[in-house]
Nucleic acid binder design. Structure first.
Lengths: 203, 203
DNA sequence: GGCGTACTTTACGCAGCAGTAGCTAAGCTG
DNA sequence: CAGCTTAGCTACTGCTGCGTAAAGTACGCC
């Protein structure tokens, strides 16, 4: 078998190649059980290439993976919720739908974000990525919920947003094992559970 | 300062000593960033003692920590829900209350269970521990919800239980950072969010 | 007192892996 | 096609930390 001939590629293309491979391997084995050799092999490259295009260290490589996947998920959910105007119920459902769609189509990225340890060296990065998403949810809720004057809306919506995000995460986790990847069904389940309570909280 | 005198202790007491220390250190640093030397130091023992009473390997040590903490949490929630008879709403509230109490009084144990990576070598053990808890929640829900005849109740309650557990986890996580450790308030928040939906689902 | 053994100290073998030094060849430029 | 720049590769180095071996020490029971 002829070995794949060496090809020179533009940096951004190589970087994508490296990050894609890294996300796959990290999602499979986690940070510490992943070796840079494994990432290199998955990418079909040599280890030094992983270092040149992956940030120069294993930790930085995972950092970049987390950032990229968080961006993807955040913009997907954010875009859906901020789309064509509609009432609150519809927008929440659209947001959930986008979340479950993104999560099921990018399983690896989701694993990197949500199944990574939240203790140890990269706890800060994982925490930051999740916080960005929960904060966005809290904002969206604040725009809908009636809050007494003079009260910072986020003091009310922050815990709700955390619970809502946790519920979505828990359900996504369940769906992964139960092989129920239909975002419509999943969003519907969560709406049935959460919407009546949220509607009452809107006052 | 006089060095602590050497004391000979029965095995179960030593094992508790080792596991307690391990839970503390693992919760602080995670599996890979924790060294066996650190566990030994935390326990005030020598490294060979950690090996004799901790299962013989680092991995087995964490396994035992996970099992013990999961047992603690499960029996706490289970006991509260199965206590003195009451209507469904009160029992759910009591279960949530027990969860948040347990989680805030045993922060380290909770970290070991819920902030540990769910990819890599010990993914199976963490997953199993969480599944046991979610399954129990699903059982409790199944006893309350009205399900059409001929339908396995768990097909309905399993996703709801996963979402409920996720919401509780997300809120507990938020409470940890927001410094809101009152189980009454937390249980109340979650009840307000979830109960209306659950009540409708009861038919 | 003295014996068994629970415990300590110290030291080390070994493995896995992050990160790099130095070589090879791809492909542009004239 | 000759020559040079640099992308890419092969092959190492060094370190960290698990797990254990060996030899000594003191606790507590008889």
């Amino acid at each position: 078998m002829a070995p794949e001939p060496r090809r020179r590629l533009p940096p951004e293309q190589r970087e994508k190649q490296v990050l894609d491979a890294a996300v796959r391997v990290f999602s499979r084995s986690g940070f510490h059980d992943t070796s840079m050799d494994a990432v290199a092999e998955e990418a079909g490259l040599s280890k030094p290439m992983v270092y040149t295009h992956g940030g120069g260290s294993k930790e930085e490589l995972l950092r970049r993976c987390i950032r990229r996947e968080a961006d993807r998920l955040l913009s997907s959910v954010s875009g859906a919720a901020a789309g064509a105007p509609a009432d609150a119920e519809v927008r929440l459902r659209r947001g959930l739908h986008a979340f479950f769609t993104s999560v099921t189509t990018h399983r690896d990225g989701w694993s990197v974000l949500y199944r990574q340890a939240r203790t140890g060296a990269l706890a800060d990065e994982v925490q930051a990525a999740r916080t960005r998403i929960v904060d966005r949810v809290a904002q969206l809720l604040a725009a809908e919920l009636a809050v007494p004057d003079g009260v910072d809306p986020t003091t009310v919506t922050a815990p709700l947003a955390a619970a809502l995000a946790g519920a979505a995460e828990g359900l996504a986790d369940w769906a992964r094992d139960a092989d129920e990847p239909d975002p419509d069904v999943l969003a519907g389940t969560l709406m049935a559970l959460l919407w009546p309570g949220l509607a009452l909280l809107r006052g």
